[in-house]
Amino acid sequence: MGGLLKSSIARKVAMALSGLFLVLFLFQHFSINFTSVICQDTFNELSHFMGTNFFVQAILQPILIFGVIFHFIMGFVLEIKNRNARTYSYVKYNGAANSSWMSRNMIYSGAVILAFLCLHFYDFWFPEISHKYIHRLPEDPTRYYEETVVKFKDLWRVILYVISFIFLMLHLLHGFSSSFQSMGWNNKYSKGLRGFTVAFAIIIPLGFIFIALFHYFNQL
């Protein structure tokens, strides 16, 4: 991989491709989660399918985990390289005059999302792995809804989720359309893409916030 990613452009393209893959996953994740506020049975059915389907579990899940790890490691590698490119900082640097806060602080929004993923894995992924592969408990297709909503009983957790989704929004606001630029896609449709980026980056995280708040207030 080191050879493939030797050039700065190759590293940026790899970053863009892994980011777009995660955006696709995010949309799929949101679509399934949103059914939890509409229909308990549909949510259970879809979750059961995702949790037991061989293609999803044996092929897509490892690819997803690789994509997540790759995106984060590459993000930190690029950050270190970029910091090394300016060994002496400016006394006065007016970044706000020529670029957005989101574009200048992707590493920080990304770090918050990474911290959130640790909590999210602790909440859902590790218990799921433990249920299926460590304790080898019998499969119950109706367990998913209850296991999900119970996590949103604690206010502190809901607050952490909401904060994380706000940082996800900031990350997506720059990252989505930026990934197309990295891959060489800048043309008459780019303005439309930036509009779609803003809509997607706001709607999806707000949707996740709505789901978390819905289940919290539903259990009061």
Binding site: K6, S7, S8, I9, R11, K12, L78, K81, N82, N84, A85, R86, G95, N98, S99, S100, S103, R104, M106, H174, S178, Q181, S182
Partner: peptide, 18 residues
Amino acid sequence: MVRQMDEEGFGNCSNTGA
């Protein structure tokens, strides 16, 4: 040109547009 640019120690593009 890209190889030389990288060898000179310039950073990566983050598409900030600055």
